[in-house]
């Protein structure tokens, strides 16, 4: 029963990892940009939601939408003003830009809001759970997070594989030169991708903040590492792989913790390394990138 509990809790944890990694996977898959600011954007999403709830008195459930709209809009601006230009310079320029953003965000947040925890309360939902036997309890909120992660990834899947815009995005990912020849402005595709990616990361950040009851400026830095691991474990370019990657990392961490409390992070990293060695394309990846 304890092992069952460890696996169940790991899957619940995996939900938030998968959600956090979805946007990263998308940006990397389409634009080949490793967004180092991803974790900090997540935290920013939490801050926007908190400000919306505390200062603007928007109902907590709706702050998710506010946060997604605001950070999604920021994604558009960053893509059009900074990343487009950086991508034209060299392969490393976008990396440095996102690195810069990852430094700027937490420090601006500290200046504006201090280091105090910025609260985002969800009342009794935060601690409510379904009791399954004496040793197993499924928290309602973690469960909602998993459902939301599946919904987001399913939505992205439908978008990419069932709509015209999605097809263009995929085509751009494969070969932007050819897409340009077809009369499609790849920068618009990139902007759209960024908006979607930033909006999903804001959603992840808001749910993370609700889960923790609040957020502090420097929490994003470890999260970005987890998100990268999820993407690599799941396989680049595969949305279901991202979900699987999140689950694998979550379960690795909680089972690791079951063996010994000092193991979870190490166990996660070891699984990540094992995947890199034995299946470098990831669990669901189609092929190794050239």
């Amino acid at each position: 029963m304890t092992w069952l509990n460890a696996i169940a809790q790991g899957m619940l944890l995996g939900g938030i990892f998968a959600m956090a990694a979805a946007g990263l996977s998308l940006v990397f898959g389409v634009m080949r940009v490793a967004n180092l600011a991803h974790g900090d954007l997540m935290i920013l999403g939490g801050y926007v939601a908190s400000v919306a709830a505390v200062s603007l008195h928007i109902p907590v459930a709706l702050t998710v939408l506010v946060s997604m709209a605001a950070v999604g809009g920021l994604g558009y601006l960053i893509q059009r003003t900074l990343l487009d230009r950086a991508m034209g310079l060299s392969e490393f320029a976008p990396l440095m830009v996102t690195f810069g953003i990852s430094v700027i965000i937490p420090n601006v947040l500290v200046q504006l809001f201090s280091n105090d925890t910025k609260p985002l309360g969800i009342g009794s939902l935060g601690t409510a759970s379904i009791r399954v036997g004496s040793d197993l309890a499924i928290g309602w909120f973690p469960l909602i997070t998993v459902v939301a992660a599946v919904a987001v990834l399913a939505g992205l899947h439908v978008f990419l594989y069932r709509t015209q815009s999605g097809r263009i995005v995929r085509a751009t990912a494969d070969d932007r030169a050819v897409v340009r020849l077809m009369g499609v402005d790849n920068r618009k595709v990139y902007a759209l991708t960024s908006v979607i990616a930033f909006a999903t990361v804001a959603l992840a950040g808001t749910l993370y903040t609700m889960r923790q009851g609040g957020v502090t400026p420097y929490e994003g830095q470890l999260t970005v590492l987890f998100a990268f691991e999820v993407v690599i474990i799941g396989g680049l370019g595969s949305l279901w792989g991202t979900l699987a990657g999140g689950m694998v990392l979550g379960i690795a961490q909680s089972v690791g913790a079951q063996i010994s409390p000092d193991l979870p992070l190490l166990a996660g990293h070891l699984v990540f390394l094992a995947i890199l060695v034995f299946r470098p394309q990831g669990l669901f990846g189609r092929s190794v990138l050239a």
Binding site: T2, G10, A257, S260, P261, P264
Partner: peptide, 17 residues
């Protein structure tokens, strides 16, 4: 004492158990 867990641990189920 369940042991020295790492800072940044996101799941404490085993310690709680």
């Amino acid at each position: 004492d369940p042991g020295a867990y790492e800072n940044g641990t996101k799941d404490f189920s085993s310690i709680i158990a």
